[in-house]
Structure formats: structure tokens, C-alpha cells
Amino acid sequence: MTTDIAAPEAPEAPRPTVSLDGRSGGRKAKNTLATVLVWAAFLLALVPLVWIMWTVLGRGFHVLLSATWWQKDQSGALPPGFDTNVRGMRHALVGTLLMSLLTTVIAVPIAILTAIYLVEYGRGRVARVVSFMVDILSGIPSIVAALFIFAAWVTTFGLKIIPACASLALAMLMIPVVTRSTEEMLKLVPNELREASYALGVPKWKTIVRIVLPTSFSGIVTGVLLGFSRVAGETAPLLLLAAYTPYLNENLFSGSMAALPTLINNQFLSINDPISGQRVWGAACTLILLVLVINLLGRLVGRLAKVKR
């Protein structure tokens, strides 16, 4: 083998001397510039967030400290300018929770089953159409979703508007959010796990239920809670389908029901009145707190079910 390879005939060209000490000045400057730009962008993105928190907490947090705020509704409230009590937002908090929960109960099964279909079963044209529909649904303005439910519920079926109608409209907004996030989580499950399960003689549906879903559980929960947060702060469908009322209503299927966003909207009409102002900022603060609590809860659930190491 040694004789086959001919030695190179040309003499080796002199190599340039390479300096190993220190990075070149130009590259160092570019690095510094990029670092500064990245940090500046980060701080700029932080400005609105901090500002919002500052404003809302500064104006509304003291309202949350009163027990009445959590215990009472707005019954007995006098017209703006005459009332001297802030009173409570229990009716709105209960309304928001009930309507958002019903929305979740309607939307999550549909969304998760759609995501399972798209990732595990969907092939060809039908899957493309379904995926496209989900995209369209996520682009629908919330007020249009509310109008659609109004048209179907009242015009077509001739029924009376109830708070659950708002949940139906909100479900239309929640389905695409949860479908997309669940889809991404299911795609992250390695195919090898599915194959390992099939190779043990486990049917496909059982593989999905017992292997794929548990593996992606925490991600799916996170997606559901993001959807819940989005829905809890949604306003337009409530304005159309769940008229504001100052009284507590715990029945989703009759009467009208208040919610935190509609409470804010209602009191905003007289925001220059200090009492109404406190109600607006207090409700805003409560809404942010609610979303925060939901998110923390989600993280906790996600961590408990986390892939063990």
C-alpha cells in the first residue's frame, strides 16, 4: 500500500504566520454591537409590560384589599356621582369563571380530538382541509363569532339569549388556539415511542391514549390554560351575548351574567367618577391576577405530570 501514493512533487508553499492571541478588533466590535442591540430590544419589549403592570397595580391593587370587593356584587349601586361605596365584583368574577369554564369544557375535547386527528390519523385532502379550517377559525374576529352564535341561536332556532351563548362564541375562539398548541405538542412525541408501543402489540388508539397523550400531557395543559386566559379576557362576545348585570347570577342557562371585562366596560362610561374609576382598575387588576393564578396552576399541574428523570 505504501508504494501507491506518490509524494507531492511541488515544494510546500510558505504558510502565513497565524497569530492566536486575542480576537481581531473588527469582530470584537461587531460582537459588542450585537450584544447591545439584543439587550436594547429586550428592554424595549419589557417597557410596555412593566408600564401596564405599574398602571394597573398602582391604580387598582388597593381595591383588592377590601373584603367587600370579593364578597359583594354591585346591587344597590347608585348612579355615578351619587354612590360613595365601591361595592364588590363577586358577580363578575363568578360570571367570568363560569363562562370560561363552560367554554373550556366545550372547546377542549373538540380541540384535542382535532389535534389527534391531524397528527395521528389525518392524511391527504381531508386533513389539509381540516387544518385550513383551523387556520380560518383562528383568524375570525371575536365579534364575528358572537354574531354567528347570535344568528344561529336567535334567528335560526328562535331561542332566548342565555349566558351559555357567550361560552359557545368563546369556544369558537378557544378551539383553534388549543388545537394548534396540542398539535405542536403531539408532534414533539418521538415516533420511536409509537413504534415501540406498536411492536408490543398495542393497538393504535391505545398507543395514543396511554403513550402519546401522557408524554405530551404537560404541554397540552399549558396550551389549554393559555386558551383559558385568552378567553377570560375576551370582551366582544360578552357585550353581544351576556349583557352586564349588577347582580350575581350563578345559572349559565338563564338571565344575564356579568363578567370582569363587561364590568370594566360598564363602569368605564363614568370613569371620571372616582368610585367608578376604582371599580374599573380593581376589575382590571382582578383579571390580571386571575390569569396569573391560572398560569401558576398550569405550571404546577405540568410539573406534577412532568416526564420523570
Binding site: E192, L193, A196, A199, P214, T215
Partner: peptide, 10 residues
């Protein structure tokens, strides 16, 4: 048995 070890992570 597969090329890469694939125990169920959960």
C-alpha cells in the same frame, strides 16, 4: 427491539 433505546419516558 429498535436501533435507538426507546423506553417510555413517562
Amino acid at each position: 427491539v429498535f436501533q435507538r433505546p426507546n423506553p417510555f419516558p413517562t
